[in-house]
Design a protein around this nucleic acid. Structure first.
Lengths: 124, 124
DNA sequence: GTTAGTGCAAACCTTTTGCAGCTAT
DNA sequence: ATAGCTGCAAAAGGTTTGCACTAAC
């Protein structure tokens, strides 16, 4: 499938439109609806992960080998980093014992500021 | 403002449409655009918080007295609970030291399963 | 021949915008 | 008069859907 191919080449998190553009580059006949339908399929197969940020479009990324990571999303530059899930064990335990709440580890994203953006914010 | 009034009466997190409906009930002349504009204003004043969940609409809630809490969102039933920020201190420290990443404490939401939904999931 | 996936076009739905009018300073 | 909100209508923008066609089993 073209969509899988181009997603493999696109770095990071991309909008449906980005993926559509890239796919069309590979095969001009591809339609937007096909891209959306394929993304939906891949999501249901857990091969693609969707990320939604306030004030931004939905973004998609391949979800491979991320088993032991969760995501750090910089709210300023949009960069996404991976962090080790082990860091969550104490939070996990606390939320479970205090709120009977079980973190959805498969889709955890924490928003914040990466180092560069935190530095720039200090300046202003 | 009508919007503030109705939001005070609406429990939890509501879509713009919900708020519009409630506002129209109080004053039939209110327009959708007014609701959106007001919500935007209230957000900029930090009186309203927006929450975006994958596959769901944007939802708004009054943001008062939440200073020391972050949100737990059940991905199954949509319930939102508050959790104490103190639970984050160790995670915060780890993310800072390992990734130079500074959590956006003002807008943190963690997705997962509340107790009821976790129980129901076990059943199925 | 039935199933699955596609392109195309149109629809959908939430949100935004332009504009003219009103209200209060 | 001026500034700020408003309703109204229309547009925008991302996403979904209906349909007819094609290719594969």
């Amino acid at each position: 499938m073209v969509v899988l191919d181009v997603m493999h080449d696109l770095p990071g998190y991309n909008t449906a439109e980005d993926i559509y553009d890239a796919a069309r580059h590979a095969n001009p006949d591809v339609d937007r609806s096909t891209v959306y339908r394929t993304l939906e399929l891949l999501q249901s197969l857990n091969m693609v992960l969707a990320l939604e940020r306030e004030g931004d479009l939905r973004r998609f990324t391949l979800h491979v080998g991320h088993a032991n990571h969760f995501h750090l999303l910089c709210i300023r530059c949009g960069r996404v980093m991976d962090a080790d899930k082990e860091m969550l064990t104490s939070l996990q335990r606390d939320l479970m014992s205090h709120h009977d709440f079980q973190i959805d580890l498969g889709h955890l994203t924490i928003n914040g500021l990466c180092r560069e953006c935190a530095d720039n914010t200090k300046d202003s």
